Structure formats: structure tokens, C-alpha cells
Simulated scan of single mutants.
Amino acid sequence: MAARMSEWPRATWWRTAVRVAAVLAPLLTCALLSTVRDQVSAPTSVLILVVWVVAAAATGDRLAGILAAVSAGAWYDFFLTEPYLRFTISDAEDIEAALLLVLISIVVTEIALWGYRQQKQAYLRSGYLEGVLGAARAVAEGDMPAPAVAEVVARQITDVLDADSCRYVEGPVHDGRIAVLDHDGVLTRNGHPVDVDRVGLPSEEYVAVEVRRGTQVAGHFLVTATSHRTYPTREQRRIAVLLADQVAATA
């Protein structure tokens, strides 16, 4: 499903590589600028270094952005302010420039991360909508048998809720230990609401997403999330119910 974003940016090796680059790029840049420090003004050097901070923050790793900001400030001091090749600044203007570099870099990091999160949310919403429309199309066309539609929807619910697995079961939920997701995205177990935003989906029991035909429960999807704690938003939970509703026409 398109909503599940690639996991490769989260890989340990990738995060490590980004953070190492976030430290080394300002170091190498300042070392290079030190060879032409007489021809490059302090504001130009600061702007060049901020570019590396933006690049680090654009990966979505806050620590990488902060490391780049600190590295830029430190190596700017070391290579581009007097006395050179020492972590000491003697000129008040240089101190101001170094502090502004770090502060601006941190602000830019937060702005870049905000933009990254907004882009990710937009991508996820687009994927969720695509999944709902795909399920609705399969039902409307009538080319897929009911078990195949249920299987497609189960995969999409797994993606939307960031769960481990999901399967369709005919009939209502009979086990009171199983938490049930309603159309408002509220999860209840034994008549009590579960604060999914705070504690996540239950990992010790199933979560049921009912398939209703009018007032009757035709079946339900059993969702498993035991390998990791998952915190689907209310919007995601409501989309999972909407996906399940597509099976009502074929159940």
C-alpha cells in the first residue's frame, strides 16, 4: 500500500551515516573556506554552512540537524575566526556571527523538520485515500470474490494501523477481552475506552474492526500488533473502520 512509507530512512546504518556526514560536512567546508578566507565574507560562510544544516534536517533526523548546527558553529570558530586554528574567538563581531550561526541553524532545523512531517502526513493521507478507493472499486466492479476483497482490505488495515497482521473472521466478536474499534475511531475494551494516543494499540490481545451491514455485525477483522507498540491517530483508526465497511457489501 502506498501509505506505508519506505522504511529505509529509519535504518540504523542510514541514521548513523547521516549523523556522521552532518558532523563532517561543516568541518570539511570550513577547512576549505579557510584557504580563501580573505576572499569570502563571514555572512557568505555562514550561509554556506546553513545549507549543510538544512540538508541534515531534511532527512527527518533532528539529531543530525543539531549535530550539523553545533559542528558548523565549532568549525566556523576554529577555521574562520581569529585566532585561527583555536577554539577561541577574540572579536565581538565574530562571537555574534558564531552564535547567530548556531541559533539560525537550530531554527532552520526545526522548520525543516516541520516541513518533513507535513509532507509525510500528506503522503500518508494520500495513501489511505488510495486504499479506501481501491477497496471500494473492487467491491463496485464485483470482479473479486468476497474472500479476495477481505484479504485486500486486511492488508490495507494492517498498513493503516501499522500492525503486524490482520485477518477477517465471520460473525460478531464474542470475546470480551478483545478491544473493538468503532466508527468514531474510539477503541473500547470491556466497555471502557482505551487511550490509544497515550498507550497505543493493545499488544497482548487482538483489536477487532467490525464489519456492519445495517445494525447487524457480519464479521470483523482481527488485528494483531505484538511485535512493536503502535500509536495510530484517530484519523487512521477511522480509516481502518471505513476500509472494513467495504467488505459489508460482499460479506
Rank of each mutant, 00 (worst) to 15 (best):
A2M: 07
P9S: 07
P9T: 05
T12V: 13
T12R: 10
W14A: 12
V18K: 06
V20L: 14
A22L: 07
A25L: 12
L27Y: 09
L27V: 05
L27E: 01
L32Y: 03
S34V: 02
Q39G: 09
S41H: 06
P43M: 13
L47S: 05
I48T: 12
I48A: 07
V50L: 15
V50M: 10
A55H: 00
A57W: 11
A58D: 11
A68E: 04
S71F: 05
W75R: 06
Y76L: 01
D77K: 15
L80S: 05
T81F: 06
Y84K: 05
T88Y: 00
A92G: 08
A97F: 08
L99G: 14
L103H: 13
E110A: 02
E110S: 02
L113P: 00
R117S: 14
Y123T: 07
L124C: 11
L124M: 14
R125N: 01
S126W: 10
Y128M: 09
L129H: 09
E130K: 08
G131S: 13
V132C: 05
A135C: 12
A135G: 13
R137F: 12
A140L: 15
G142P: 11
D143I: 13
P145H: 13
V153T: 11
I157C: 10
T158C: 08
D159L: 09
V160N: 05
R167E: 15
Y168E: 09
Y168T: 12
G171Q: 10
H174K: 09
D175A: 11
D182P: 01
D182C: 02
H183V: 15
L187Y: 01
D195A: 15
D197F: 15
L201V: 08
P202S: 09
E204K: 13
R212L: 11
R212W: 10
R213S: 14
G214L: 09
L222S: 06
L222H: 02
T224E: 06
A225L: 10
T226F: 14
T233K: 04
E235M: 13
Q236T: 04
R237N: 07
L243I: 10
L243Q: 05
V247I: 10
A249S: 13
